[in-house]
Design a protein around this nucleic acid. Structure first.
Lengths: 156, 156
DNA sequence: ATAATTGCAAACTGTTTGCAGCACG
DNA sequence: CGTGCTGCAAACAGTTTGCAATTAT
């Protein structure tokens, strides 16, 4: 069975997805990578949204010697592997969020608290094909982000 | 009459829109602002996509003393006024483009040459309303960007 | 005059790079 | 023990800021 609204199911796999991703791009299982994976998994389970700096700070709490570059290097790989999502806000800032599912999805973001929700919502293939035809592009990817205020921020 | 594909119509107004925008946020019509407006109008008419640095370089050709900050200050205003569009690419870079129309629109971007095309395409109000209802957000804005290769870059 | 606006240079944020040394396998 | 990975520090890109000088009104 399930819970509230739509988003259920693949949630259990955050841990596996992160672990697998690290295995895929790493030849060695090093301490820093284990730390990063552990932190990300925790963040992923909570659905939290964070900046690179946020993650680095968090990692420094348990291991103050982990280098900025190391973290950036891992994040870059994970973003490419679509395990980590990067959400660009209109003001030019951006944050990251562990994908809650491995299927294609889009985002709904609160411009006040930066909370981000994953949406199953997508366009019809035919809509995309029509644009391709019309414009002579071959479309490989697309991003849809909705911006607004979440339940909690609407009031304040 | 018109040209090639879809996008025609409001094109004529690029100049007026830029001029009006500057009048709206400026109390004084200064030389630098006139220069910036002129450059932007030219870029707008050509549909070109450019970085802040691109624009600054271009301005330096006619007036080498115009300051980076001045240009950034104007661009910021224009982006807020939705006269200038900011397009975020997946690799974290971003470029600007004068809006070809003052109506709501989205983008199709070539990931190789950074060409950007405006699309009339949008979602149905009902689709957005459904997401609002489902998620308890109040949605104020949304951005849809398609990424791919344009006619010219597909071949290379 | 006088307040808005500018140009400059310095500060800053976020990210990347080069490289010597460490540690995983 | 070899080399993939790390940490450091410095470099970097893009943008913002503080402020004294300038300039439109």
């Amino acid at each position: 069975m399930a819970g509230k609204s739509g988003k259920v199911g693949c949630q259990m796999d955050v841990e596996k997805r992160v672990t697998t991703a690290f295995e895929e791009f790493s030849e060695r299982s090093t301490q820093p990578r284990q730390d990063i994976a552990r932190s990300l998994i925790r963040l992923g389970k909570s659905g939290a949204v964070f900046s690179a700096e946020d993650l680095i700070k968090r990692l420094h709490r348990s291991n103050p010697h982990i280098g900025r570059a190391t973290v950036y290097r891992s994040m870059e790989k994970l973003v490419h592997m679509k395990v980590l999502d990067r959400i660009d806000f209109v003001d030019g800032t951006h944050f990251f969020r562990l994908c809650g599912s491995d299927s294609h999805h889009h985002h709904l973001a609160c411009t006040k608290c930066h909370r981000v929700v994953e949406l199953d919502f997508c366009l019809e293939d035919e809509q995309i094909a029509a644009i391709e035809r019309q414009q002579g592009f071959s479309i490989q990817d697309h991003a849809i982000t909705f911006f607004g205020l979440c339940r909690d921020c609407r009031g304040g």
